[in-house]
Design a protein around this nucleic acid. Structure first.
Lengths: 209, 209
DNA sequence: GTCTATAAATTGATAGAC
DNA sequence: GTCTATCAATTTATAGAC
């Protein structure tokens, strides 16, 4: 789900005041969602964090639900788009294991920098109303397909042994990376160092004998 | 935090009706918490799921907050206690890497079977009120200490190379395992098979050259 | 564009009947 | 032990002033 509107969300056009305010609301909502969950993120909290009143949010969004969905879609799209661009920027003959390594670092850095919205999109997926969940899940599947291809290519190149389930591997990698948002502390280890440890563990662990 | 009361929670004594009802409430609350988050788990939903009314819950728990805390403490204690027993049951000369492998399988199976309460304890930790969070986090740290020791012992035995951060490794493993609760489908792969893939990837990935 | 005021619906919690 | 009835506090959402 990397639509043109999604790309616009990743790099907001320098439009009018309304667009800027909309972006500030999305940021505040992402923080509230991550801290208090779907039902716990109150409109009054979101608004007060950026010096507004709850009622004013309805000028920018049709409903609380629409605001939440916008946050979740944007967070996932940021990570998705960033990874697609990173992979596209690699030389065409980049070996699949190196592409996988780059994907691990890109996903982790994306989660740790744009973590509020991105992790809301992932962690709250089972808490939101069914219709919102269905639309956000479509984006999750599209992003997952990108990872499936990375792993398939790596296996075809002989970098992943045959006795492991690629679906399990994919979910294990993403689980390890996604949880980092909850325990990451800048003063302990850099995102690059964390990515290096995880990708070296994963890549060496998947090698054939 | 494996207190005697915690052990009692893992294997409830065949007390009177009140104890049995209390256990059913805890189960229903765990399901609601996992499905809807901290703020979204309503007392009316929890009660109706087991054929009760919201007001009746107050005979068994002082407040909604106390009920939530009981669920979270119980979920974590179940996994913690199960792992301690499993490790204690291993022969004294079991090599550290094998102990680590057993821990990975035990944690995963525990999360997948007692998943509602256990994953609530982990996933909702940042959504609950500060005082509840502080007490539940103390249990998390005690459980984390168990894993720290497993990894230290494995490194001392030469099974983990020196260039990876053990804290990163620990959080990566637990992240991979904890997320399985969200994507696990019995018809796709058994808990044992998932544990095998993850532990083989991790253990081989951490080996020295 | 944002605010104030308010309507309408929920929800946690308590009291008392049974 | 559980239910019914009810209170008090919140919260989403709307309407209209500025």
């Amino acid at each position: 789900m990397v639509s043109s509107s999604a790309l616009a969300a990743v790099e907001p056009p320098p439009d009018g005041k309304a667009e800027a305010t909309r972006a500030r609301i999305l940021d505040a909502a992402a923080r509230a969602l991550r801290a208090r969950g779907y039902a716990g993120a109150r409109l009054a909290d979101i608004a007060s964090e950026i010096g507004m009143k709850a009622g004013s949010l309805y000028y920018h969004f049709d409903s609380r639900e629409a605001l939440v969905e916008a946050v979740m879609a944007r967070g996932l799209d940021y990570v998705h788009t960033t990874l697609e661009r990173r992979l596209a920027s690699l030389p065409a003959d980049t070996p699949p294991p190196v592409r996988l390594e780059q994907a691990i670092e890109t996903h982790l850095v994306g989660m740790l920098t744009q973590g509020d919205a991105a992790s809301a999109s992932i962690k709250l997926i089972w808490q939101v109303p069914p219709d919102v969940r269905a639309r956000v899940l479509a984006g999750h599947r599209a992003y997952g397909a990108l990872w499936k291809k990375l792993l398939r290519d790596a296996r075809r190149a002989g970098a992943i042994r045959d006795d492991v389930d690629l679906s399990v591997v994919r979910m294990a990698i993403l689980g390890a990376l996604n949880w980092a948002v909850d325990w990451y502390r800048p003063e302990r280890a850099s995102p690059a160092a964390i990515a290096r440890d995880i990708s070296s563990m994963v890549l060496r662990g998947l090698e054939a004998e």
